Simulated scan of single mutants.
Amino acid sequence: MNRLVLFFLFPFLFVCSEGEAKGDVYVVVVGVSGYQEIPSLVLPEKDAKAIAALYKLQTKHVILITGKYATKAVLLKSLKDQFSRAKEDDMVVFAFSGHGYADGICPYDMPAKGGKGITYREIQSILKQSRASRKVLFLDACFSGGIRGNASGIHSHAVNTPDVLLFLSSRTGEASIESPFMANGVFTTYLLRGLRGGADADKNRKITAKELFRYVSRKVGEKTDGKQHPVMWGKFEDDTVLFDWNRR
């Protein structure tokens, strides 16, 4: 569950592929830097606050949970409660920055030995229960690619939850890197820059899934000297608009 100290989540607003905003957005953003039992990190709470701030430009339904408040019980309840409010035309977003392990993510009270955090199976179960037609998961955690099993590439249809887009900070066997010399982790830094316009290759003020993946994966790979490879995965169209600045 260690995370390299060198460099590290993710947000965006999902709209229909034609670019027309549809429904509302319900967001839960979590960042844990200091843990109860396992080693601490530096930047996840800053990552979470930056992501939450971006989403607040587009929706009032944003829950931000950081530090000691991000226990397993609180996170699971917050996800269930927030996502249960969403209707069919809405989108739900879960963004997490912190420690991860092969089968899940580490809440604040992650046991050092003999226990488990929040498993990917638990997260997918909550997503399945939501009525929202669009579901987005951003994980900036070591081994976050484990949620996709043995799948690889920008697309995979192995996900058993329909209409889910996952943007993961690293492949299954990789650490997500952070640096004390950066305001945010590597993945978060370029995710935010991409969503703010850096990924807008055609300059139409709409950031698509394909544009964002190309931008973030290239920048993270360059910054980490090829040690970290973000993965975008799930059931979605390449031209799906993830953030539309025209709707502000």
Rank of each mutant, 00 (worst) to 15 (best):
L6H: 15
F7C: 09
L9K: 08
L9N: 08
L9P: 07
F12M: 12
F12N: 10
G19M: 00
G23M: 02
V29W: 00
G31F: 06
S33G: 15
G34H: 13
K46P: 03
A48C: 04
A53E: 12
L57P: 02
Q58R: 14
K60H: 15
V62G: 03
G67P: 08
Y69N: 14
T71E: 08
K72L: 07
V74W: 03
F83Y: 05
R85M: 15
E88L: 14
F96G: 00
G98E: 01
G104K: 02
I105C: 00
C106D: 02
D109C: 07
P111F: 03
G114E: 07
G117I: 09
R131W: 09
K135C: 00
D140Q: 06
F143T: 03
G145A: 01
N150R: 10
V159S: 10
T161F: 08
L165C: 01
F167Y: 12
A175D: 12
I177E: 15
P180E: 12
M182Y: 10
N184E: 05
F187W: 06
R193P: 01
G197C: 08
G197D: 06
N204H: 05
V216N: 00
R218G: 06
E222S: 11
G226H: 08
Q228W: 03
H229Y: 09
E237N: 09
F243K: 01
D244L: 03
